[in-house]
Design a protein around this nucleic acid. Structure first.
Lengths: 225, 225
DNA sequence: TGACAATTAAAACAAGTGTTTTAAACGTAT
DNA sequence: ATACGTTTAAAACACTTGTTTTAATTGTCA
């Protein structure tokens, strides 16, 4: 009604509104597909505001991406550090490491359940995008985190070669990202055995699956030829 | 040189050239990113030829997608059928089922090794695209195949609930697609432990990992809370 | 050779892209 | 109230997108 004046108590500032709208649109439709007009229309601001606050569309993408990914990775590292501190010098249990690696991302979905289940799809999409269009800053953020987890896993599973640890951690990340971004595919495939609101169960299911995969014998056995 | 006339013995027809160029570009850069001009320039044909032969860009996408995905899924189903026929009525080994599910896709990469390792990225990307832009025809193609494999796995692992089988198969698909599309990420992450030409080892690594995951105990145990 | 269909080529189409420019409105401190 | 820097708004920017139109070319059969 009183649109002539802006109340700065309730009405979020333009910058924040752009970030929120962009986050939701990017998550559901991808970076390239969403246009600045879609974002600014949803946010109720002018098109030029994006370039004013973020320099370019790419700048907005990096900001949106970082806002979602950074706290998740920080949380993952902290959980791992805490567990290692508590264990003294001893190797951690595999399931404990995997829990730290997987929980923060999946938990974020559960927390944003009341709103759209949209937030985390972004983080998933962030790693499934093609190499060139992924900001380098974000990629390195994942890279150093991955190294820490692989080191912990190699310590817990000394009979595995380093290459095998990397392989299996890579598989685990793939399973996680796929279950984050493609949950509807699972719901549709399972014909009611898995429902849409079962996303919260993904964590325990995934930890159990990945732990089994890591504790399997060396790869030479099964494959033949 | 003698570009005035076309030799129809060596020079592939326009339609085929478009398909080939589109396949490579789609695989490396994604569907939305690649423009018709890029495709037709690479193919050395006129822009209008795409709409002439395929009706629209979407029509071209479906054709390219089907050409890659269909033979792979046929091969997967045939391997599963052959194995079940050989086993009579008995349940198959888990590793055998997984081998049938994973081999055709990964093998396609090895076969196209002399050319670009590009072909199969398409199939991977095909399932990691967002729901709405994925052709329904292709999705159903995967869906019925998935059902067959989940049924075989449920028979081999009767102590698992149906939901658990779906979950774990979903994880396996995620691991496969991620290793198909993001092999460079693994190479970079592993710092030389896994090299770029190790893509062929993915099959045995993946079968071993997924088999371990499927044979793990029920999910209730590990997750806590 | 002449006629008819299939194919290719060039050009224009309307619509949408990210970005920039220009000017107006705003809040704040002098 | 005046002036100043910040923020918003509208319009135009040059460019690319997928698609269509129109015309020229090709191949084939009568």
């Amino acid at each position: 009604m009183s649109a002539t004046q802006k109340e700065n108590s309730e009405a979020t500032e333009v910058r924040a509104r752009i970030l929120e709208a962009a986050e939701q649109l990017f998550a559901t439709h991808g970076f390239d597909t969403v246009s600045l007009r879609q974002i600014t229309t949803k946010a109720g601001v002018n098109v030029a505001a994006v370039n004013y606050y973020f320099g370019s569309k790419a700048g907005l993408e990096v900001e949106v991406l970082g806002r979602v990914v950074r706290p998740i990775n920080e949380s993952r590292l902290q959980m791992l550090n805490d567990a290692e501190k508590e264990a003294g010098g001893r190797a951690l249990e595999v399931e404990c490491i995997l829990h730290a690696a997987l929980m923060p991302a999946i938990q974020t979905i559960k927390e944003s359940e009341h709103s759209d289940p949209v937030v985390l799809k972004l983080a998933g999409r962030c790693m499934s995008e093609t190499g060139e269009e992924m900001p380098v800053a974000i990629k390195k953020l994942f890279n150093q985190t991955d190294h820490r987890f692989c080191a912990a896993l190699a310590k817990a599973l000394p009979h595995l070669s380093k290459a095998e640890v990397f392989w299996r951690f890579h598989f685990t990340m793939g399973a996680m990202l796929y279950s984050l971004t493609q949950h509807e595919t699972l719901v549709m495939m399972s014909d009611g055995e898995v429902t849409a609101d079962d996303a919260g169960k993904a964590l325990q299911q995934l930890v159990a699956f990945a732990a089994g995969g890591f504790c399997a014998e060396n790869a030479c056995k099964g494959g033949g030829q």
